[in-house]
Amino acid sequence: MYFAGIDIGSTVTKIVILDDKESLVSKIIRYTAPEHRRFANKLMEEVLEKAELTIDDIEAIVATGYGRVSVPFADKKVTEITCHAIGVSCIFPHARTIIDIGGQDSKGIKVINGRVVDFVMNDKCAAGTGRFLDVIAEALGSSPHEMGEYALRSSSPVTINSICTVFAEQEVVSYLADGVLMEDIAAGIYDAIVARIHGMVRRIGIEQEIIMTGGVAKSRGLIKTAKKRLGRVLTPPEPLITGALGAAIFAKRLFEDSNRKGTLIDKSKRRMDRVTFFDQAAR
């Protein structure tokens, strides 16, 4: 038996397929494309092909993330915060604080035994998100990954005073003009982003173990800075897929729950034709 979770994030889409022992069968990670409905179907076909499965082999499918409403083949839609909590707790059973830095938002989640007990999210501001780092990396003429590596070499990080993406970029440009070393600028940026996220997550009370997820958690520079401020910080082997993983585990629980109640999941409602938004509206 197989279960799937699809996490359509603002920047990256991830699909995870698990077997009934919750072992990873297949996964796929791609940048999110416009027209989510068409895109979700295409990606699902791809991951099924990779796993040599058909959609009917999947007992339950759960969609999460910003684009979860655009998955016509999902049996259920669940919020990303819940899925992250489940996914992370599956890897780190003692996780209490999850810091997820996504492409367009960042959030702190307090969990106990895989259950969300509190959470906090950034508001209408790009500071402290993956997009913030993209913008700054561009200003430095590097990639976010390279920026993380530069930061590791810094001995004297600069101070970035602004938390606004646009103004922080201006500061970076000024530092570059002053001839400041790239590694010190990169380290200063990580200091600023971690300080902002720390300030936000502190509201829910930071407790060990702290797990950092999201694409930004792949940056070694960021993790080093986070450890300086927060102490022990753990990251999953693949920090991008915890939401999709949680969704797949949720799907398994959904299936088991339905079986117990005798209300089987109706697979006939799934739509795998490449429906577009416009098709959907016409119906």
Binding site: Y66, T79, E80, I81, R115, V116, V117, D118, F119, M121
Partner: peptide, 12 residues
């Protein structure tokens, strides 16, 4: 989604 998660936390 934030409201949904909040209500989960309320239930807990």
């Amino acid at each position: 989604p934030q409201i949904d998660t909040f209500l989960e936390s309320v239930a807990y």
